[in-house]
């Protein structure tokens, strides 16, 4: 016990001497290339900080800069989609058209049988990281799924779609990734009726 105490205080002493040494170099390099304090933070950490905000605070952050505006859209988008997916237990059929800022569709409702995803809105954002390149569709009770339109750089991933019987993929832009198509088809292995068309 006494041994561990003494070693701890020893290391603390060492630590404090370091503090003075590092401040000067650190400050200099930061003043050179970090005018905007948020620019050091990647999107997912910024999103984490904003996650505890009330809507009123979130909306005000949208006026700060383009980067924050796009994060703000993403928060609104996923909140609305989550609210629909979890808050309408009686819904049987649902169609999303040109969604934007959505990380995925997670549908747990037992009554939901049919899901249509019609494309994804494209927004160019240089600062955006690639963390959410994937768009997951997780819908364990869906029996019918339609996907059409363009998804730009998004990679569609199907999860828990074992209940699917009918699947329809049309006007579907999958040129970005052949692997995405083969992965999609692999997840559709239980489907009885599959339509792929122009």
């Amino acid at each position: 016990m006494s041994h561990s105490d003494s070693s701890q205080s020893e290391s603390e002493n060492v630590d404090t001497t370091y503090v003075d040494q590092c401040y000067s170099t650190d400050k200099r390099c930061k003043m050179d290339n970090k005018p905007d304090r948020l620019s050091a933070l990647p999107d997912h950490l910024l999103r984490h900080i904003l996650s505890s905000f009330q809507m009123k605070d979130v909306i005000r952050t949208g006026v700060l800069s383009k980067r924050l505006l796009s994060l703000w859209y993403a928060k609104l988008g996923s909140e609305v989609v989550d609210a629909i997916c979890s808050g309408c237990p009686g819904l049987e059929s649902l169609k999303f058209c040109m969604c934007f800022g959505v990380l995925g569709f997670h549908i747990n409702s037992k009554s939901m049988k049919k899901l249509v995803i019609g494309g994804y809105w494209y927004q160019e954002n240089k600062n955006s990281d690639d963390e959410y390149k994937e768009l997951t569709i997780c819908a364990r009770n869906i029996t019918s799924l339609e996907i059409n339109g363009s998804f730009h750089k998004k990679l569609l991933v199907l999860q828990n779609v074992q209940a699917l019987v009918n699947a329809k993929l049309y006007s579907f832009d999958f040129r970005t990734s052949q692997k995405m198509l083969s992965d999609l088809l692999a997840s559709l292995s239980n489907v009885e009726k599959l339509f792929i068309g122009p």
Binding site: P35, D36, R37, L38, L45, H48, I49, L50, S51, S52, F53, Q54, D57, R60, T61, V63, L64, S65, K66, L68
Partner: peptide, 25 residues
């Protein structure tokens, strides 16, 4: 993250911009 959020809560746009040195684009 909670500390960062608490510092930004209820702050005006101008105040946040100044605190974080955000360039308005």
């Amino acid at each position: 993250c909670q500390s960062a959020a608490d510092r930004l809560k209820n702050k005006s746009v101008r105040a946040v911009r100044e605190m974080l040195k955000i360039t308005n684009d």
